Amino acid sequence: MHSPANTPVYERVRRNPKFQELVRQRSRLALILSAIVLVGYYSFMMVVAFAPDLLHKPMSDDSALSIGFPIGAAIIILSWLLTGVYSHFANGRFQDLTDEITRETLQ
Rank of each mutant, 00 (worst) to 15 (best):
L81E: 02
L22M: 02
K18V: 12
V13H: 04
K18Q: 12
P58Y: 02
G84T: 03
I71W: 01
W80F: 13
Q95M: 12
L106I: 11
Y10S: 09
I76K: 05
L22P: 00
Y86S: 05
F50H: 09
I76Q: 05
S34W: 06
Y42R: 05
V23P: 07
T102A: 14
A5Y: 14
A64R: 13
L65Q: 13
D62C: 07
I76D: 02
I77P: 00
I71S: 03
I76P: 01
R24E: 14
F69S: 06
M46E: 12
Y10E: 07
G40Q: 02
Y86C: 02
F44R: 01
V47D: 00
F50N: 08
P52H: 05
S79W: 03
M1A: 15
A51S: 12
F94V: 05
L38F: 12
H88T: 10
V47K: 00
P58F: 02
A5W: 15
A51N: 08
A49F: 08
R28T: 14
F69L: 12
G84Y: 04
V9T: 11
D99A: 08
Y10L: 14
P52R: 02
H2D: 10
L106A: 08
D53W: 00
K57L: 14
G72K: 04
Y10V: 10
P8V: 07
V48A: 02
L22I: 02
E11W: 09
H2P: 11
R12D: 05
L33T: 04
V48Y: 01
S63R: 03
F89S: 09
I71C: 03
G92N: 03
G40C: 08
L29E: 00
I36E: 00
T98G: 10
F19E: 08
S63H: 04
N16W: 06
L65H: 07
L65D: 13
H56E: 15
Q107L: 12
M45E: 14
H2K: 09
V9E: 11
S66V: 14
L97P: 03
L31S: 14
L38K: 04
I36N: 00
Q95T: 11
S63E: 04
P17S: 06
S3V: 11
T98A: 11
N16L: 06
V13P: 00
L81R: 04
I32N: 03
I77N: 00
I32E: 02
R28H: 08
R28V: 11
V37C: 05
R103L: 11
L78P: 00
Y10Q: 08
A35T: 11
G84H: 05
V9K: 13
D96W: 07
P70K: 01
W80E: 01
I36R: 00
R26A: 11
L82W: 01
T105P: 01
D96K: 07
F94E: 03
M45W: 13
L106F: 11
S63Q: 04
E21P: 05
R103H: 08
D61E: 13
Q25R: 14
D53K: 02
A5V: 15
S34E: 05
N91G: 12
A5L: 15
Q25S: 11
A64C: 07
E11N: 08
Y41N: 07
I77M: 03
I75N: 07
H56G: 13
D99H: 09
V37H: 03
Y42V: 14
A73I: 12
A5C: 11
R93I: 09
L33F: 03
M59I: 15
Y10R: 08
